[in-house]
Every structure is written in C-alpha cells, then in structure tokens.
C-alpha cells in the first residue's frame, strides 16, 4: 500500500509541476491598460485627403491610443449627408486595415464633396476630426437591371390596378441615382397588390452561386413619416423558360404565373423616410411556386418583378389605409457577384 501511495503522489506532483510550467503570468489584456488613463499617442492620420475613387484610389486611417478602446470612425458627406462608419475594439487603427474605398453604409451615395471625418472613443468626450475632399465618386460594378435614367428598360411591362391616385411611372423628383426613378404608389381598397413592373433579364453568362449573387435595389419609403399600414415591396425572380410576354391578355409577363419556377422576397414593411438600399442574396429568396428544378441558379433567371403591396382598407385590418396612398419607389436595381454593391472595395 505504501509503495502504491507513494507512486500515486509522485505522479500527482509531477502532473502539477508539468502543468505549472506552461502557465502564463497572466491571462487577458492588462487591466492597468484597459481601465487606465486614456491618451492619444499618435493622432488621426489620413493617407489621402483628396481621393479620386473613380480611378480606384482609397483612404487609409491610422491612430494609436494608450489602451484598447471601443472606437468609431465616421465619414460624413457635408453635401450628400452620406455616411460610412468603421468601428472596433482595439488600441490602434492601422492604415492598411481601416481603408475607405468611397462606398457608403446606406444611400444616398457620396458626391464630389467635402467630407468630415470624426473619430470618437466610447467613454471619452473629445472627438478627433479631420476633413477630406472627394475628387471623384466611386463607380460600382455589377449587372445593371434598371436605373430608369433613359426610360424603362427594354421589354419592361407595367401593370397596376384601377385604384385611386395610381402612380406607376417614371419620375424625376427624388431619384436615388441619376435623374429618374420608378414610382409605385396609389390606393387600392380591395386587394393587396397595387401594381408592378416586370423586367426581362438575360444572366446566362453568370457563374456565381445563389449565395454569392445579390440583388441590390433602392427603395423610397415616403415623406413626412406617414406610411400606409403594412406596405411592402414584393420581389419575384423567375427561372421559367416560358416566353416573357406571349400572352398579351395577361396582366404583365407570363413567367411569374402558377407553375413557373419563381422565387420570392419581400422588403416588408416599408416604413422609412427617403431612400434605403438593400442587398439580398439570391439564396435567401424563398420558393413562391414550384415549376422547374427548384434550385436557385442565377444564370437561369429570366425576369424580375417588383411590385407594391399594402394592406387593403376593405379587409378591416387597416382602417388608416382608407386615407393614405401606399408608396414605395424603386431605383438603381443591380445584380452583383460575391459582395453586396455597397460593400464593394
């Protein structure tokens, strides 16, 4: 017994000694740094104060603090009001890592304008400010579906109900990009669907998977904070091989009918003022009607439908909709591969 006990104790002590050898002096960031006095060691620096994003230039930002902090870097266009933010928890901003390529968090897009750069640190009152001048705006790449500047896209079909104050047409005011957008609005008391625009598409050259293929679209929500109850944009993508508009007695295109391979996504509700820009991976579209192989294949997309829907007043579920027109204008409809449009570098 004594021998075995001794062996056990020796093994035990050996284990303790062995594990102790690998122990670091401390774990985690130093508390004296984390909770110590905050100081800026190297002030905010920009690698380029007059970037021409149209020619591929970029701006890097650097700054060094005395301790790790939650920081936020905001770039704001003084004319457009566009914003781009970076934020992280660290003690240093490296100009190789914090790089701006002229893109924005959401629309409106940056213009050729002066921008204010503001670096703020959580828990600290002082902010660190710089300015830069955008000499050329970023050019986004992608497959353009519609920007409406030269009218409706070729072959596009527009259909809307016989309701009140129906506006399914091109409009010059409040365009997101360029000088025209497509307005969708009106009041239909008896049906959810107010109208839609169908656009034929040929994406046969696309090789991206559904996860890496994004539909980007700008949506205008309204003004003055008044919105129809449960109004939304209904988006359909069809992979049907049927002719786009063979049946002229149909409301619009034929490829979205029952039995066609159609996928659906809703931007719902539309309850904001001004423009917002959405990027939806094709993989997140749900099956609306089964018809083909039910596999989302970007190269097989033959057409897109953008429709406005809202809760009908006669349903009794939305009494306020008897006094207000639904509205959701759309503009700058693009497909992009690999990244959403606003995240392009």
């Amino acid at each position: 017994m004594k021998t075995t006990t001794c062996i056990s104790l020796v093994l035990l002590l050996t284990l303790i000694w062995n594990s102790g050898c690998n122990r670091p002096a401390s774990e985690g960031p130093a508390i004296n740094d984390l909770f110590g006095v905050f100081e800026v060691i190297d002030s905010l620096q920009l690698t380029n104060v007059s970037p021409d994003f149209s020619s591929g230039q970029s701006v890097g930002f650097s700054c060094k603090f005395s301790k790790p902090v939650e920081w936020n870097l905001l770039i704001r266009g003084l004319e457009s009001g566009s914003r781009k933010t970076f934020e992280a928890f660290s003690s240093e901003l490296f100009s190789e890592q914090i790089v701006w390529y002229g893109n924005c968090d959401d629309v409106p897009f940056f213009l050729e304008e002066t921008c204010e750069v503001k670096l703020s640190v959580e828990g600290e009152e002082e902010e660190y400010v710089a300015t830069l001048q955008v000499e050329g705006v970023k050019t986004y790449s992608g497959i353009e579906v519609a920007n409406f500047d030269a009218g409706l896209p070729d072959g596009a079909l527009v259909w809307y109900q016989d309701g009140g104050n129906m506006t399914f047409e091109l409009a010059q005011e409040n365009a997101l990009q360029g000088n025209q957008c497509f307005k969708m609005g009106g009041r239909v008391n008896w049906d959810w669907s107010l109208g839609y625009i169908d656009i034929p598409i040929d994406l046969s050259d696309v090789n991206a998977s559904a996860e890496d293929f994004f539909l980007n679209v700008g949506v205008f929500g309204g003004v003055d904070g008044e919105f129809a109850t449960d109004q939304y944009v209904n988006i359909l993508l069809s992979e049907s091989d049927a002719p786009f508009n063979d049946n002229v007695n149909n409301n619009a295109a034929d490829i979205f009918g029952t039995g066609s391979e159609v996928y659906k996504h809703q931007i719902r509700p539309v309850d904001w003022e001004g423009w917002r820009y959405f990027a939806i991976p094709y993989s997140e579209f749900e099956v609306k009607s089964e018809g083909g192989n039910n596999v989302r294949e970007p190269s097989e997309i033959r057409g897109i439908r953008l429709g406005l829907q809202a809760c009908p007043f006669n349903s009794g579920n939305c009494p306020d909709n008897g006094n207000i027109e639904a509205q959701a204008d759309v503009d700058y409809i693009m497909f992009t591969e690999e990244l959403p449009l606003l995240e392009q570098e």
Binding site: A25, S26, E27
Partner: peptide, 8 residues
C-alpha cells in the same frame, strides 16, 4: 488563482 487575469 494560479494565473492572474489582466494582471500578474
């Protein structure tokens, strides 16, 4: 403790 957290 065997190892300090944020300090020795």
């Amino acid at each position: 403790e065997l190892t300090g957290q944020g300090t020795s």
